[in-house]
Design a protein around this nucleic acid. Structure first.
Lengths: 265, 265
DNA sequence: CTTGCAATAAGTTTCGAAACTCTTAGGATA
DNA sequence: TATCCTAAGAGTTTCGAAACTTATTGCAAG
């Protein structure tokens, strides 16, 4: 039970923490520069941030995935056991999630998962569409070869899962979520407006929480998604202005189907 | 040396009425609250926010006011002394400011005040204008008598300071900042889109940091501001659609003048 | 049965110390 | 002089316990 020596459990997994509000140019585009093997490097790769930042990613993912249902009370006694981290570290991560809108904090009553509603979904959808359309337009205007290539790669990676059978897709849903996010990030990666990317990212994660509902309850026209993604990808790479319209339609259709589910509540 | 009893220094009156610029130093009063087991003090006053949330406001205000210059390292040894709070509490507040974009965090290197730049100002300005224009339009469409009245009141309160002489205005600059914020909040208060208000607020505070630069360095056409505010107020209350155009011009002029200052850097 | 009110339990918030990391200074070696 | 190694110092990150607050229970009185 007791742990006399504090050992920062540094598991070597490469799940790097990408903050939803990541501004910096920590893009995956960066080519790894090989360093001389004889020299000692202060840090191997990009700073796999401290366990606190890692926790932020895990907590947000668990809320997005509805591991914690909306309005669930987040008790520290439960959280410390689940994540194996101290109270202070947990408070720090939860505070950031308050700023991002995933968690609410009432003085003296602790933290709760933020509620969901049809109205909230409608707002998030509208803002996300507005951000992503503008970011995509700017990205199309400014993107270079590397940007194009990354989109094609991300689309292919996503398509591998979308072409699977229903059962297999459900089994690898975690992968789908990750690759879907990377695909949309690749589309807008060349946008030079850092704040626009930041705001887009904020809304993306909010919407992802609703998006997960659709996967949990029912499957919505699976093959269609893949077709839409392809059309968006092709129009974008062709620098076709109608890419933004396709993107809007793609997002809105998904949100509308989710909104229908929420009405039952 | 040790302090066996933790006494939350509870200064018994309104704490946040005027955000005093001079917070540090030895200003902490030593109020001894004897805790008798029988006597309970349930109705001391309306319990204000926890000291942690209060700290968040103070820290943000100090960054906005350039009490901590951009890119300043925020050392806990300094902060604990200045705010009289523990490290954990400070980390919690700083984490939220990271999410809001006021502070950056590098693993192992601690917190720093986020940098400012001409480009960042341009982005923040554009987003803020877009948000506020939409929020104002929706507010005009949905506002009721109470909303109108609040705007008129906020404008009057702001005008009292703007009509003062230059020296007097500078002396009460803290009041001006507060009332200016309340005026703009009143304008959009009837907007039903919660996320739009949230995003607007985020950009407002970012812009306020830049706005403070203009006051610190030089005065920019003082009487004009008041005229603009009046025009915006009147158009809004009249539900005139050109209110948004006036608002945009008002914001952009301010930002442009600040941008000119930043170019020297 | 309902209400009021202690006493207890459950949970939150704060704090400082210890573990850990990064930087810098000093000195030895070639 | 330049380079590398070590150690001390400064600063950060984490953790759990103690102080504090809210919710629940138990019990007596109306």
């Amino acid at each position: 039970m007791k742990n006399p020596v504090r050992l920062h459990a540094r598991i070597g997994n490469a799940t790097c923490a990408q903050s939803a509000i990541d501004i910096g140019g920590s893009g995956s585009l960066n080519i790894h520069l090989k360093k001389s093997p004889k020299n000692v490097e202060p840090r191997d790769d990009d700073a796999s941030l401290s366990s606190g930042q890692d926790l932020l990613t895990r907590l947000r993912a668990d809320i997005v995935k509805h591991t914690f249902a909306p309005e669930t009370k987040l008790k520290f006694s439960d959280l410390t056991e689940r994540y194996g981290l101290g109270i202070g570290t947990l408070r720090e991560a939860l505070s950031q999630l308050v700023s991002e809108g995933f968690v609410t904090l009432e003085a003296g009553k602790g933290f709760r998962v933020a509620p969901v509603s049809r109205r909230d979904l409608a707002e998030v959808t509208d803002h996300y569409i507005a951000f992503e359309k503008r970011a995509l337009a700017q990205s199309i205007a400014a993107g270079d070869d590397e940007w194009e290539t990354r989109i094609v790669a991300a689309f292919h990676s996503l398509g591998i899962i979308e072409d699977l059978s229903w059962a297999e897709r459900m089994r690898r849903h975690g992968d789908w979520v990750e690759r879907h996010r990377l695909f949309h990030e690749a589309l807008v990666a060349a946008c030079p407006d850092r704040w626009l990317l930041r705001l887009r990212s904020l809304m993306f994660y909010q919407l992802e929480r609703y998006r997960f509902l659709s996967k949990m309850n029912r499957e919505n026209s699976p093959s269609r998604k893949g077709t839409e993604h392809r059309a968006i990808m092709e129009a974008t790479v062709a620098r076709d202005a109608k890419a933004t319209a396709l993107l809007e339609q793609h997002i809105r259709e998904t949100s509308d189907s989710i909104s229908g589910m929420l009405s039952k509540t």
